[in-house]
């Protein structure tokens, strides 16, 4: 008997039943399609502005750094300021994303921009985030042709750009946004939830930053909602 039948048969035998009847199966299918939320922390039940502040506070507590800028056009200068302040390489591997392509890098000639997925020699990556989660200060990154996920992990320094309007309250809010964007039941190949830079405590329970992923995570928040 194939292992699949053996395993499923054994489960059913031990549950003292056969395959679920139509009614029971429909109830489970409805549950799967209902996407109903369980208990969600009420800490994010805040006006959106306060949610953004919570995101900043939470991300900072996770050892990410955050800078808030007024418009997307300020990204190149903010990036330059961050890299020079930390004495980091100005060679940047940028996600081949249309919004980033439109940035005025002519203002920052010292930044050397290449586009594509990550290679081991890349030291700094610049990527757009899909969403931010105020609850825990977490970034939600969705992979795609314009957003290769290796950029989130291979370079030592990861700079992520997110608009304030992309910051939501909870994990569940990001699921709703993903379903709206990619269709129900579909996810991009990789969804990365990122909460601060890489770390390990595997040597004598001592916390060390930069285990395999980025040592530094810098988040540029574009305050796109200020004008309204």
């Amino acid at each position: 008997m194939p292992a699949r039948d053996k395993i499923l048969g054994r489960i059913r035998h031990n549950l003292k039943r056969g395959p679920l009847g139509e009614e029971a199966a429909n109830a489970l299918k409805a549950r799967l399609e209902g996407h109903s939320r369980g208990i969600v922390p009420n800490r994010t039940e805040l006006p959106h502005k306060a949610q953004v502040d919570l995101f900043v506070a939470k991300a900072s507590a996770l050892a990410a750094t955050v800078a808030r800028i007024a418009t997307l056009d300020e990204v190149p200068e903010a990036l330059r300021d961050y890299l020079t302040a930390h004495n980091l390489s100005t060679k940047i591997k940028m996600a081949p994303d249309k919004r980033l392509d439109a940035l005025p890098f002519d203002k920052t000639p010292m930044l050397e921009i290449t586009r594509g997925s990550a290679e081991p020699s890349d030291e700094v990556s610049l990527t757009p985030a899909f969403a931010g989660i105020a609850e825990t200060g977490t970034l939600c990154m969705a992979s795609g042709p314009e957003t290769p996920s290796t950029l989130n992990f291979l370079p030592e320094n990861h700079v992520a750009v997110i608009k304030a309007s992309q910051i939501t309250g909870t994990l569940e809010d990001s699921w709703d946004r993903l379903r709206a964007e990619y269709g129900v039941g579909n996810l991009p190949r990789t969804i990365n939830f990122i909460s601060g830079p890489s770390r390990t405590a595997d040597i004598e329970q001592t916390l060390i930053m930069g285990a395999h992923g980025p040592r530094r995570l810098h988040i540029l928040i574009v305050d796109d909602e200020k004008k309204s």
Binding site: G116, S117, T136, S149, R189, F193, S195, R199
Partner: peptide, 24 residues
């Protein structure tokens, strides 16, 4: 586990890389 609110990386992987993807 560790007292973190979220671990640093939580990753959902769905299928192989898509036709247009440049990594994965």
């Amino acid at each position: 586990a560790t007292g973190q609110e979220m671990s640093v990386y939580t990753t959902f992987s769905t299928g192989p890389k898509r036709r247009e993807d440049i990594d994965g």
